[in-house]
Measured scan of single mutants.
Amino acid sequence: MTFKLIINGKTLKGETTTEAVDAATAEKVFKQYFNDNGIDGEWTYDDATKTFTITE
Rank of each mutant, 00 (worst) to 15 (best):
M1G: 10
M1A: 09
M1W: 12
M1E: 10
T2L: 12
T2I: 14
F3D: 01
F3A: 01
K4H: 13
K4S: 05
I6Y: 04
I6L: 05
I7G: 02
I7C: 08
I7N: 02
I7W: 11
K10E: 10
L12W: 14
L12V: 12
K13N: 12
K13I: 11
G14W: 15
E15N: 04
T16N: 06
T16S: 08
T16F: 15
T17I: 07
T17G: 03
T17V: 08
T17R: 05
T17P: 02
T18N: 04
E19T: 14
E19C: 11
A20E: 03
A20Q: 07
V21F: 11
V21D: 08
D22A: 02
D22C: 03
A23M: 11
A23G: 03
A24W: 12
A24F: 10
A24H: 10
T25Y: 06
T25F: 08
A26I: 03
A26N: 00
E27R: 05
E27H: 09
K28Q: 12
K28E: 09
K28W: 09
K28A: 12
V29W: 10
V29Q: 09
F30Y: 02
F30Q: 00
K31A: 06
Y33I: 07
N35W: 12
D36S: 09
N37S: 14
N37G: 08
G38N: 12
G38R: 12
I39P: 05
I39W: 12
I39K: 04
D40A: 12
D40V: 15
D40Y: 13
G41T: 05
G41Q: 05
E42C: 07
E42G: 04
E42P: 06
W43Y: 04
W43N: 00
T44N: 07
T44R: 07
Y45W: 02
Y45E: 00
Y45S: 00
D46Q: 03
D46P: 00
D47L: 04
A48G: 07
T49Q: 05
T49P: 00
K50N: 07
K50D: 02
K50W: 05
T51V: 05
F52N: 00
F52S: 00
F52M: 00
I54A: 06
T55Q: 07
T55C: 04
T55F: 09
T55L: 06
E56F: 09
E56W: 08
E56P: 07
